[in-house]
């Protein structure tokens, strides 16, 4: 699948934006200013980007508690996301949702989700809507290796298959469901083994390699759009931070993250590939780096300065209040 120069720049910007967003949150969370639970996507950027690069306004995604990357990929406003995470009124959900519930339905982002396995049934519905309304849209459920074991996921795989829905089930396998290894908790060695049981293709892909993800995503999305039904894709990747911010990660091997960062970082691999093939020069990428740094800095500054919701906001956005 051929990527234009503009596509490559867009993909890099998307990955870099996600990375900077998360790295900055890691720093800011430690200051104590950010309330609640925050789960960072750093290290997994090639996955969200590889899929979202194929999507447009017709398409829907459902995310997980680790949802910032998918949100950015699907076009959510970075300033409003940051403000949401700070609990501000200018946040994407008015400060009512927070990190775990970032959503922008206008953008086709059906929400980060605090319930493991909450997304796949919703995505069956989004796929059904696309099919019935003949929008040509596809619907993607991003789940983790934890949610891959949930009954909701198993039921959704079956339903999407029997209804031949334009859905993708993308399992981002970072090796840990919270603190438990997927080697322990998932019954099959290859996640894609389960696809056969639901009569759909199962594809495993290296999630550190944007190009590999992009290609696999493209195939599956094309198939879905053309009425070929759902696919199951396992993206093998790593997270750089804990299950949530504050997790000491004592379950991980010594230097595990350090080694992954040194050898498999998706941004480094991307740059090496495009610079090596002379598709982009370093200066173009460096400029994106600088832009993104400034954008995130600005987003944090604005989020910090923004006003919080007020008492009047507590009782709005419900049908009936008591």
């Amino acid at each position: 699948m051929q990527l234009s120069k503009a596509d490559l720049l867009k993909a890099y910007r998307m990955m870099k934006t996600i990375r900077e967003f998360e790295e900055r949150l890691h720093v800011e969370f430690a200051t104590g200013e950010i309330p609640g639970f925050v789960h960072l996507y750093a290290g997994e950027e090639a996955s969200a980007t590889g899929f979202c690069m194929h999507l447009d306004g017709r398409d829907k995604i459902a995310s997980t508690h680790r949802g910032h990357g998918h949100s950015i990929g699907k076009g959510c406003d970075v300033d409003a996301m940051m403000a949401e995470i700070y609990g501000k009124k200018s946040g994407l959900c008015g400060g009512k949702g927070g990190s775990m519930h970032i959503a922008d339905l206008d953008k086709g982002m059906l929400g980060a989700n605090g319930i493991v396995g909450g997304g796949p049934p919703l995505i069956c519905g989004a796929g059904l809507a696309a099919k019935v309304l003949k929008t040509g849209g596809v619907a993607i459920a991003f789940v983790g290796d934890g949610a891959f074991n949930q009954g909701t996921t198993a039921e959704s795989l079956n339903l999407a298959s029997v209804w031949r829905l334009p859905c993708l089930f993308v399992v981002e396998n970072n090796g840990y469901a919270e603190a438990t290894s997927s080697k322990y908790s998932v019954s099959c060695d290859d996640f894609t083994d389960r696809a056969a049981a639901y009569s759909m293709p199962g594809i495993a892909v290296d999630g550190h390699d944007f190009f590999a993800v992009y290609e696999a995503a493209g195939e599956a999305i094309k198939r879905a759009r053309s009425g070929g039904g759902p696919s199951l894709i396992e993206v093998k990747l790593n997270r750089y931070y804990g299950h949530f911010e504050g997790d000491a990660q004592t379950y991980r091997g010594v230097d595990e993250v350090k080694n992954i960062r040194a050898t498999k970082d998706c941004l480094v691999l991307f740059r090496r590939r495009v610079e090596g093939a002379k598709l982009l020069d370093a200066s173009e990428l460096n400029k994106i780096d600088a832009d993104v740094m400034a954008q995130i800095e600005n987003a944090v500054k604005k989020a910090k300065a923004a006003p919080k919701p007020t008492a009047a906001d507590l009782m709005t956005d419900v049908y009936v209040s008591y």
């Binding site: 469901a177 919270e178 603190a179 438990t180 290894s181 322990y184 908790s185 004592t250 091997g253």
Partner: peptide, 20 residues
């Protein structure tokens, strides 16, 4: 329960969490 020990099957500590 989920991570009531925490660390099952990992290379690190076998009781990394002891519950969330």
């Amino acid at each position: 329960g989920e991570d009531v020990a925490g660390g099952a099957g990992t290379d690190g500590e076998d009781e990394a969490w002891g519950g969330v």
